[in-house]
Amino acid sequence: MVKLLGLVLSRTSLALRLVLGLLLGAAGFLIFYFLPANLVELASAAVGEEIPPAVAGLLSSLVDPYLPAVGLALAATIFLCTLLRGTKAYGFVTVALSLLYAVYVVLWFHSGTVSIAVPEALLGGDLPFGISLSIRVEMPLLMGLYLVPAALGIAKGALLVLMPSLKKD
């Protein structure tokens, strides 16, 4: 038997937690870090040819520079959350996971407003005049919808942190 932050586990259970944590962490790594950090390369691979620099620049501008770092932290927290489920630290890890997820959502949605400056090269190089196009997408409600799980997660984490003291009462 192994004692993990106040939780007694069998070695098999711990091994299972480690495997499940690694799997979920790897999935989180792929989704929250690898995908945004390598968006241009993945898009090139998906279409089977090199993406023009103008499109590559446009795709890169959609990804906030801090997003991969937060995604990496999120993947690590997912692993910890799976591993430490039921332990004394689970409540804190849940709150951390929810906060990181909330930050990730805010960065992903660019705080609810995405402004895209479409490069001139994408607007038709044959045009006899210069033209610029900017697109602004406002989606604070959609971002809010994505933040609901984070809010619920923070509530859950807070309850888990407070649970021992509440039980004592």
Partner: peptide, 25 residues
């Protein structure tokens, strides 16, 4: 100088506006 804008909303979640500007000889 030509300025053109297009806007629409997909209620209630998204509002999209596009603005184009160009210099025409």
């Amino acid at each position: 100088t030509l300025l053109a804008s297009l806007g629409l909303s997909i209620d209630p979640l998204i509002s999209i506006s596009a603005q184009a500007s160009g210099t025409i000889p």
